[in-house]
Design a protein around this nucleic acid. Structure first.
Lengths: 319, 319
DNA sequence: ATGAAAGCGCTAACAG
DNA sequence: CTGTTAGCGCTTTCAT
């Protein structure tokens, strides 16, 4: 289809070797030959065939990614960021929808064999994980722990950022802080700052559970939260916080003056809310930079790399 | 890294050719040899190198996909469905974040040259389209029209499904139908059923514009919609309809008895709303099946393939 | 400064 | 029934 090195060589009357030298700007080729070859290459619209190069060098620029479509918005952003970063580092992300059974994993790995050495699996199905050990590829497992000689896990500790958020509220003078939501992994981090050496006296933690964790749940919980007398509220999910902001707006409750609001997930939309929502989020950039680094330098087995969520302070909880 | 045909041949004491015959189940190999070769292959965990195969056959199982991360939820579902379908048809989707300038397109196409012959671009940037004609690859452009010898466009007519939705409302006996939203492409389809030969007498179209088209806008518009005396409402976007459903629930307005509700986008969440939301959506399955077919049989140039949105009747508008 | 040739893993034409 | 071999496009070693 497209012109090859051989074509360029023939058209410019030199050997393949010289073409290569000219095109790669290597030494050992005369000025004149170099210029002519380059002109011809441009003329023929020569572009290297990466697949052939990979074959010859026994390397691969492909990286397999398995992604579950039903993941939360935050994971989508992680995926798109990862794709962009891999592109930037010269890798080609190869996507697949998640295998649902052992045999589907087998088929997938087989299909990608000889193409990619590294497979990134976001939110893998735990039941299938033990199967991975049998394959030659290296796996990077996101958000699931599994020890195997060819698996490297990336985990994110939810609690750190949540605790940081609460500490920030305490430091800003808030004392009666309520957590609202239904996601268990939020609890530990929320409670921690209330039993630390430097916990301000009078600090009090409340909890208002919700059925689910959507916009409406946040809106619905508004009355109860205000009735509790809290001066700050942490929502398990940004969408809930958004619902509450709407309630506050309707009731003319000033945020953050009367009550400070913090969410979790750092959704795109929350940043542009009125007021911009403080939130706890995953360190997407750092995680993905790490992944690219792992791929570049070799993925270690039997390893877990732990990250921490971080707190993003915005106007909804004081400036 | 992994065993090759040659390895299997050596280990089983036959030629590469025979290994191939045995593994592919071709005729011309003795029962016994076949069995032994297969055993050895399994033992060595042989898996074919697809890249080498592609090189040899001058074909490619890779399909490039350019996707803009900031697209609506409906596009994400289209993407994931497409990936699954391509996988199912034996293709490997190669993803890239969208190029932002002419030179980035050039670089991307260059990188993929020799790897993939087909590039699917979802929601391409119009300004860059003219550049595509210069490349050898075939492009499938989703949701943007551009005539070139190597471009095939896929368009979806918004109006058909919207008109169908309105007709369904009219047929169910509704007469005063309001459209609420701010998306221009919804208008034509909405108005059409009101001026057709078989339009029921008394049918009346209203329009209530909204600032944006989010959950809150639907909720906010609730009072005005009810005040208009409409017995059915079409929202430009599902999220707005969801906001309105919330308003109706709060005000104890029975849906669809007092007012029928229809949305647009066929979001996942709307299906599981209370009541399940009738909605107009893209024929994702048919579009993606078509795309796979195009790739399989060759992508025609200078072509536009038109699809139509369709109406999904659920409880929020009768049933 | 330049070229010939081997070989990555695979397929297929051609011999035996 | 089985084996040999050329060649896809590229990189690299070894000659010239």
């Amino acid at each position: 289809m497209s012109a090859t090195l051989k074509d360029v060589a023939k058209a410019s009357g030199v050997s393949i070797r010289s073409v290569r030298r000219a095109l790669k700007g290597m030494s050992g080729v005369s000025e004149e030959t170099c210029a002519r070859v380059r002109a011809v290459a441009k003329e023929l619209d020569y572009v290297p065939n990466i697949a052939a190069r990979n074959l010859r060098l026994q390397t691969s620029s492909f990286v397999g990614i398995i992604y579950s479509a039903n993941s939360a918005d935050a994971y989508k952003r992680r995926l798109y960021d990862l794709i962009a970063r891999l592109n930037g580092a010269g890798y080609e992300p190869l996507l697949s929808s998640p295998p649902k059974s052992f045999s589907e994993v087998e088929e997938l790995v087989r299909r990608w064999s000889g193409i990619t050495n590294v497979i990134i699996w976001m939110n893998p199905a735990v039941a299938i994980l033990p199967a991975l050990a049998a394959f030659q590829q290296r796996f990077i497992l996101i958000e699931e722990e599994f020890q195997a000689s060819n698996c490297c896990c990336i985990s994110v500790d939810r609690s750190i950022g949540v605790a940081e958020a609460v500490r920030s509220l305490l430091k800003a003078g808030h004392r009666k802080i309520v957590r609202c939501g239904n996601i268990p992994t939020r609890e530990a981090g929320f409670l921690r700052p209330f039993s630390e050496p430097d916990t301000p006296s009078g600090a009090k933690a409340l909890f208002i559970p919700s059925k689910s964790s959507d916009y409406e749940d946040g809106y619905q919980a508004g009355a109860r939260i205000m009735a509790s007398g809290a001066d700050a509220v942490f929502f398990d999910v940004d969408r809930m916080a958004m619902g509450f902001l709407r309630y506050a707006h309707e009731q003319k409750i000033p945020v953050p003056e009367r009550i400070a609001v913090v969410g979790f997930d750092d959704d795109n939309t929350s940043v542009s809310a009125a007021p911009p929502l403080s939130s706890v989020g995953h360190p997407i950039r750092r995680i993905n930079e790490k992944i690219v680094e792992l791929i570049r330098n070799g993925v270690p087995g039997n390893t877990t790399i732990a990250f921490e969520t971080m707190f993003f302070l915005r106007e909804s909880s004081g400036k």
